[in-house]
Amino acid sequence: MTAPEQILTNARLVLDDEVVEGSLAIRDGVIAAVDAAPSRSAAAIDCAGDFLLPGLIELHTDNMEKYFQPRPKVAWPGRQAALAHDAQMAASGITTVFDAVSIGDVDEQSMRHGALHEMVAALGDIVDDGLARVDHRLHLRCEVSHPDTLARFEALADAPLLGLVSLMDHAPGQRQFASLDAYRTYYQGKYGLDDRALEAFIAKQLANSERYSGEHRRAIAERSRALGLALASHDDATVTHVAESREYGTRVAEFPTTREAAEASHRQGMAVMMGAPNVVRGGSHSGNIAASELVRLGVLDILSSDYYPAALLDAVFRIADMEGGYSLARAVATATRQPAEAVGLADRGRLAEGLRADLLRVRPVDGHPLVQRVWSAGRQVH
């Protein structure tokens, strides 16, 4: 239950453009006051100089899928899987999460399709039953080259939690895999295919992309716009890709693979999103553009934890510390205000009076940001 009023004092408040020492009051689940001065209330919680941030907002993570399939061919009960994922989000300081589920998969043996509706249903159940610690939304990742993607998208297009749709094409020669050599290396290693099986696999993916990608991309984009859903591109690599994405009304450019595509997306008004693991590891695991380079160019707008939830907060502080990086206020905005704005969530993402009290108390220890407390709509969840 949310306390009627809570006051946090002696905190370093990360505001839109600056960091100030002061206090913040929470009442009825929203921020009631933000003051650049200590509170005199005897009941105030002393934050001991810790940072107070808006709760982190995650637009793209496939973390939930790992709980539903913790090992190959192992399915986990839906509610338990959803709750374990939810707990990890809270512990990572993520108070709003767009849980990404994949529609269409190049691996025909994958359990993703079979678990798709169970994941969506389980997520809805923990939200409806009041069991979720944080605010969950749904992100449909649509593999446009898969034959069944359009039908599967239509089956979920009216899901109550749906808020974001991304358009992907992982076929050889496309976007992330513009290099066929890189494609061969990745999928031969991933699936253990011999040379003959790999060539057959490539031929099938090429045929599917040629037949389905254009039609599915257009149809899903049009349907998403009609439903008022935010649309994201995925792995754009060229100015042509960016122009196509812009034509479809794309708001978020997920993981552009080149400087050219990132800069073009930024110029076109799309929010450029990069993976926090890319920042933490010092580069892309697949050899694409480094997120740190886009920070130095000033064109990285949003961070996503992608496959490692704890990376999000870590990356925020790293880009604030790096040479040529962002100020702390701007770095925090990449995981709070800017993702909120990109998907139309006007009630969160900032420390401002009247907004939802999603908060994160952070203490740097040996250069690493440690989560001390997390509040979701004024309720402490970690």
Rank of each mutant, 00 (worst) to 15 (best):
Q176C: 13
Q176Y: 07
Q176K: 15
F177G: 07
A178L: 13
A178I: 06
A178S: 14
A178H: 10
A178R: 14
S179A: 12
S179E: 09
S179P: 09
S179T: 08
L180Q: 12
D181L: 01
Y183S: 05
Y183I: 05
R184P: 02
R184I: 09
R184S: 08
Q188M: 09
Q188T: 14
G189P: 11
G189A: 11
K190Y: 05
K190C: 05
Y191I: 01
Y191C: 06
G192D: 09
L193H: 09
L193P: 08
L193F: 15
L193Q: 05
D194C: 01
D195N: 09
R196M: 00
R196V: 00
L198A: 11
L198H: 12
L198D: 01
E199F: 02
E199G: 07
E199N: 06
A200I: 03
I202A: 03
I202Q: 02
I202N: 01
I202F: 00
A203N: 00
A203Q: 04
K204W: 02
K204C: 02
Q205C: 09
Q205A: 11
L206K: 13
L206N: 13
N208T: 01
N208D: 13
N208K: 06
N208C: 12
S209H: 06
S209I: 05
S209Y: 06
R211D: 04
R211M: 10
Y212F: 15
G214R: 11
G214P: 07
G214C: 09
E215M: 13
E215K: 13
H216Q: 07
H216Y: 04
R217T: 05
A219C: 00
A219V: 01
A219I: 01
I220C: 11
A221C: 12
E222W: 04
E222G: 10
E222H: 07
R223K: 15
R223P: 03
R223V: 05
S224M: 05
S224G: 10
S224K: 04
S224Y: 01
S224C: 11
R225V: 04
A226K: 11
G228S: 12
G228E: 07
L229C: 03
A230Y: 02
A230R: 04
L231C: 08
A232D: 03
A232Y: 02
S233R: 00
S233H: 00
